[in-house]
Design a protein around this nucleic acid. Structure first.
Length: 785
DNA sequence: AGAATGGACTTTTTT
DNA sequence: AGTCCATTCT
């Protein structure tokens, strides 16, 4: 297993730049010589606000890189005065490498590059005391956060079934990155869910503070508060970072926007790069308005449009454009390319997800042999992580090396999280979430009853659980329980003391040894346990490797950096394997051959998104992002049935395919031109639905044929058991794609069918009402034909 | 206290 | 189909 090692650089010190000489200027011009006119213009504009609106494959990263090189070469700024904020650590790493290549590693040393989160996490380390935290604060991921919320809900007797910790976390997170306070949120709340979230919000913040912990949103919210409360601190960072670069600006949220604004306020040397058409993180609070209104925030801003695409073939761009033009609100931009038209985009139709995966696998094998591509030139993209499984199986069967980005990455594994909990506790014993995880893993006789008492004591004293664990007798424990808890606390303390004299990796080794984690896995003596054991050793090696990297690389920084790693960060370019990942993870990457799979309505776009025009537009942008990852060949695929919740479900092909209204771009496997079926159903509101064919009884002809074929022979080979054809008064089958009428909801279109017998339900989309799941036993659906 | 069993629920996407 | 949780059994 390849374990990602985080990087960490100390905050750079401030130096004053020297005026450029004629030589410097000449050198700088040389550096940007390879850019096209517009790119060079953007790179050369180093004073004042600049917005680079850049389509996919237009060389925006290249432009940004050269701009930074230009700043360095002209000596307008020292490396330490340049801050570049990227979307992932990987992007930062790559950009740093490129700048170093351009101007020389030594000249680029001290450049500050990273994600918003990692940069401000480091800033907070330095400034922690000013806001009442210690520099060794723990960073909570969503898991830890939900754990804390769940505890609070127990304390306040809130029904976790109705108000799930996850939904509460989502709402609190949303409020946080909008910089809405608990009080404000409570007054804004207009449904019971928001009300409960608002009530939990304040206590949740207090719990985090007691635990000396920050969640992801805090890493942005706290710096803002810090800057507001300490103008001198803000001032010093404004001075430190005179040139601000922000990549993927369309995906910044409110807090990130405010931070950028604060830092740039003094010099206004802010350069943002983005593409509104690639905004795909609204669900996380990203506000597309930030880029749309940049011109309003900085009236003297210069806007440069990079519209020439260097990546993809003409056909790929035509397809991407055909989809995205269905969206409204966009910054004006017209992509073009000098690249050849390229091959047709192939649309592959599969019977099942298994079949789909197999078709893709065969295609990869075929192209691998015929085109001389490497495996790393291929990427298979999908909407949800769950879809990776079938693909994985097919590739494994075919003997094709692959790697999955995301899903459960190394640091998300249970055994690693367990081990990390111990390490975190040694650094920050007040970390309640880690204490709860570690205290009885492996089991040492501390059960629910004992924990309840510890919690009661902590709550009563408004103190972290650690205080209770230190004084088990005072917390009302006795005998075996008290001894077990006391022993645990002793173990943590002992290693905290060790860490004063020993290196982080030695302490970690000793601690994990003492924890009994290794022993319990050894005792299990199963192949799985052995792998887990190995993983923990890998983690310890990663700690050692990190610590070796230099000063300031303590266990505490290791833990903080690890929390900020993204799945995509671990992707290595020269690893010769097919890449499997979600469409979201593919942002910013490119591959010679790309497969966009699972193009079914309800999956892509997701059923939930299809009801909300805004979300539907985001799904469309996601398709746009996916399609434009491809350089040479693009394949689209969908499956007629797919397993969901353990049941096979029939589906219809994605509405996005029906938006493809360009000729000679997409082809089917039979070699024929793809016929979009745009406008056949009136429900999507576009293209008027006059074309419903009476010949097929209102059914999608595709399903009409399918149902004809299926009628005589029922479930063959268990595989088909999932395709249920249900008869309505013996006339027309209700299958996905047909128009139906409901007594109260009116006309709708069947999206999917599931269940059998009395449990048969239809998912029906009603234009006016939205999507409904109806049990056929109760709902009298009439097929309209 | 801890293991075993059965039932409910799940699939958006993630720094 | 797999995971998480609650309940029950040891």
């Amino acid at each position: 297993m390849n374990v990602p090692i985080p990087e960490a650089a100390p905050l750079p010190t401030v130096r004053e730049p020297a005026p450029p000489s004629a030589d410097d200027t000449r050198r700088a011009e040389e550096l940007i010589g390879g850019l096209n006119g517009k790119q060079a213009e953007a790179a050369r504009t180093i004073d004042g606000p600049v917005m680079i609106v850049a389509g996919p494959g237009s060389g925006k990263t290249r432009t940004l890189t050269h701009r930074i090189a230009y700043l360095l070469a002209t000596k307008t700024a020292w490396p330490s005065q340049i801050l570049a904020l990227t979307f992932t650590n990987k992007a930062a790493r790559e950009m740093r490498g490129r700048v170093e290549k351009l101007v020389g590693g030594a000249d680029a040393k001290g450049l500050w590059m990273g994600t918003f989160h990692s940069v401000f996490a480091r800033l907070l380390r330095r400034e922690a005391e000013k806001i009442g935290f210690s520099r060794d604060y723990t960073i909570y991921d969503t898991d830890d956060t939900e754990r804390m919320i769940k505890l609070l809900m127990e304390r306040y007797s809130i029904d976790p079934k109705r108000y799930t910790p996850r939904s509460m976390r989502g709402r609190i997170s949303g409020a946080k990155n909008q910089m809405v306070t608990p009080g404000e949120y409570l007054s804004l709340a207009n449904d019971p869910f928001e009300e409960v979230a608002a009530r939990l919000y304040g206590p949740y913040n207090e719990a985090l503070r007691r635990a000396n912990a920050m969640d992801f949103d805090d890493l942005l919210a706290w710096p803002i508060r810090l800057f507001e409360q300490h103008p001198d601190t803000l001032n010093s960072y404004q001075h430190r970072w005179q040139y601000l670069h922000i990549d993927e600006y369309q995906d910044t949220n409110r807090a990130q926007y405010l931070l950028a604004k604060m830092l740039a306020a003094k010099h206004e040397n802010i350069c943002v790069v983005g593409d509104d058409a690639q905004s795909i993180y609204a669900f996380r609070g990203a506000d597309i308005e930030n880029i749309l209104s940049f011109q309003k925030d900085y009236p003297n801003a210069k806007t440069v449009r990079l519209e020439q695409n260097y990546r993809s073939t003409g056909r790929i761009l035509q397809l991407a454009d055909a989809i995205i033009k269905n969206n409204r609100d966009q910054l004006e931009k017209k992509l073009w390319t000098e690249n050849p038209e390229g091959d047709h985009i192939l649309l592959m139709e599969a019977l099942s997800e298994r079949d789909e995966a197999q078709k893709i696998e065969r295609k990869i094998r075929d192209l691998f042999v015929r085109s001389g591509h490497r495996y790393s030139d291929f990427a298979v993209l999908y909407r949800t992580n769950a879809q990776s499984r079938s693909m994985e199986e097919a590739l494994r069967r075919g003997g094709i090396p692959y790697r999955i980005v995301g899903g459960t990455s190394f640091y998300q594994r249970k055994e690693i999280k367990d081990a990390l909990a111990y390490l975190r506790l040694v650094v920050n014993p007040h970390d309640d979430a880690s204490l709860m995880r570690a205290i009885n893993t492996p089991t040492r006789g501390i059960g629910a009853k004992t924990m309840e008492q510890l919690r009661a004591y902590a709550n009563a004293h408004n103190a972290p659980l650690w205080d209770a664990a230190r004084h088990p007798e005072e917390a009302g424990l006795s005998g075996r329980a008290a001894k077990a808890v006391g022993g645990f606390a002793e173990m943590i303390l002992e290693h905290t003391n060790q860490s004063r004299n020993l290196l982080a990796d030695e302490v970690s080794r000793n601690l994990i040894q003492a924890s009994g984690l290794l022993q319990s896995l050894r005792d299990e003596n199963t192949p799985e346990a052995l792998v887990r054991l190995e993983n923990i050793h890998e983690l310890l090696n990663a700690v050692a490797e990190f610590v070796e990297g230099g000063e300031g690389r303590t266990l505490s920084t290791f833990l903080q950096e690890v929390s900020l790693l993204a799945d995509i960060d671990s992707l290595e370019e020269d690893d010769n394997r097919v890449t499997l990942m979600t469409l979201h993870a593919s942002k910013g990457l490119e591959f010679k051959v790309v497969f966009v799979s699972g193009l079914e309505d309800g999956l892509f776009p997701l059923a939930a998104a299809a009801q909300d025009p805004k979300e539907l537009e985001e799904e469309r942008r996601l398709f746009y992002v996916g399609a434009t990852r491809a350089e040479e060949s693009l394949f689209l695929s969908f499956a007629r049935t797919r397993y969901r919740f353990g049941e096979s479900q029939a589906g219809v092909r994605s509405r996005f395919l029906d938006e493809v209204d360009v000729e000679d771009v997409v082809m089917t496997e039979s070699g024929r031109a793809f016929q979009s079926k745009k406008g056949r159903f009136s429900m999507d509101g576009r293209g008027g639905g006059s074309g419903r064919s009476t010949k097929y009884g209102g059914m999608d002809p595709h399903y009409y044929r399918q149902s004809l074929r299926d009628e005589p022979k029922m479930p063959a080979r268990g595989q088909d058991a999932g395709r249920r054809v249900v008869y309505d008064e013996g006339v027309l089958p209700i299958v996905p794609g047909v128009q139906v009428e409901h007594a109260t909801f009116g006309l709708g279109k069947v999206i999917a069918m599931e269940g059998q017998g009395d449990r048969t339900t239809a998912t029906v989309f009603f234009p006016d009402i939205g999507q409904k799941k109806l049990n056929l036993k109760f709902a009298r659906l009439q097929v309209v034909g």
